[in-house]
C-alpha cells in the first residue's frame, strides 16, 4: 500500500499531462473539424475530395499506426526539410507529435458532428443573416456557429470521451502521461496490476467530470429551447 502512495505524485503528474494532451488535442480537433465540415458542405469538388480522403484515412488506419508514423516519420521529414532550409536540428517533441496525431484523428470525427450540426441549423436564420447584409464569414461566425453547437454537442461530447481514452497512446511514444508513469511505477515495484488499476480508475474520474461539464454545456446552449 505504501508503495502505491509513494508513487501517487508521479501518477498525478502523469494525469495532469493526460488532461493537457486531451485539451490541446481538442483544440486542434475542433479547428480541423470546422474546416472539414465546411469543406464537406462546400460546393468545391476539390475541397470535398480532400475532406473525403481525410475521413477515409482516419477511418481506415489505426490511431496507433498514425501516431508512430507521425512521431518517427515526422522527425525525419521535418529535419529533411530543415536541412534544405538550413535550420538547426529540430527535435520533434512527443507532446507535439501526440497532440497533432490525436487532433488530426478526431478532427475527422468532429467534422462529421459539425456537419450534422450545421445542416440542422434552420435555413431561415441564415437567410435572415444575409438579409441584414452580413458577409458569408459573418453569417458563419455569428449565426451558424452558435446555433450549430447545440445540435453538435452530443457528438462532441462523445468524441471527447473517446479522445480522452485515446490519449493513453501517447505513452507509446515516450510521453510521460499517467499510463507511462504507471508502467514505470509498476516496473519498479513489480506491482503493475495495482498501478494500471489506479490509472483505469483515474480515467473514469476524468470521464465522470466530463459528463458533468457536458450537461452544463448542454443546458447553456439549449437556453430558449423547450424540451419534451
Amino acid at each position: 500500500m505504501s508503495q502505491v502512495v509513494a508513487y501517487f505524485p508521479l501518477i498525478l503528474k502523469g494525469m495532469l499531462l493526460t488532461v493537457e494532451v486531451a485539451l490541446a488535442s481538442l483544440l486542434i480537433a475542433i479547428l480541423l473539424g470546422l474546416i472539414g465540415a465546411v469543406a464537406k458542405l462546400s460546393k468545391s469538388r476539390i475541397a470535398k475530395t480532400i475532406a473525403g480522403a481525410y475521413t477515409t484515412v482516419i477511418r481506415g488506419i489505426p490511431d496507433l499506426v498514425l501516431m508512430t508514423l507521425i512521431f518517427f516519420g515526422g522527425q525525419i521529414l521535418v529535419n529533411n526539410i530543415g536541412e534544405k532550409l538550413g535550420w538547426d536540428y529540430i527535435d520533434v517533441d512527443p507532446f507535439i507529435a501526440g497532440v497533432l496525431t490525436i487532433g488530426f484523428i478526431f478532427g475527422a470525427y468532429f467534422a462529421e458532428s459539425f456537419r450534422g450540426g450545421i445542416l440542422a441549423v434552420a435555413r431561415g436564420e441564415i437567410e435572415a443573416g444575409y438579409a441584414f447584409g452580413m458577409t458569408p464569414i459573418q453569417v458563419f461566425f455569428r449565426i451558424t456557429m452558435p446555433a450549430m453547437v447545440r445540435h453538435a454537442l452530443p457528438g462532441i461530447g462523445n468524441n471527447w470521451l473517446v479522445m480522452v481514452k485515446t490519449t493513453a497512446l501517447v505513452s507509446v511514444i515516450g510521453l510521460q502521461d499517467m499510463v507511462y508513469n504507471a508502467g514505470l511505477a509498476g516496473g519498479s515495484t513489480r506491482k503493475p496490476f495495482t498501478f494500471y488499476c489506479v490509472v483505469a480508475f483515474l480515467f473514469l474520474v476524468i470521464t465522470g467530470f466530463s459528463d458533468v461539464g457536458m450537461r452544463w454545456l448542454d443546458k447553456k446552449y439549449s437556453v430558449g429551447v423547450r424540451k419534451a
Binding site: L161, K165, L169, V179, A182, G183, Y196
Partner: peptide
C-alpha cells in the same frame, strides 16, 4: 470508460 491499452496492460 477506460482505454483498451490500459486493459491490455
Amino acid at each position: 470508460g477506460t482505454p483498451l491499452l490500459v486493459q491490455m496492460f
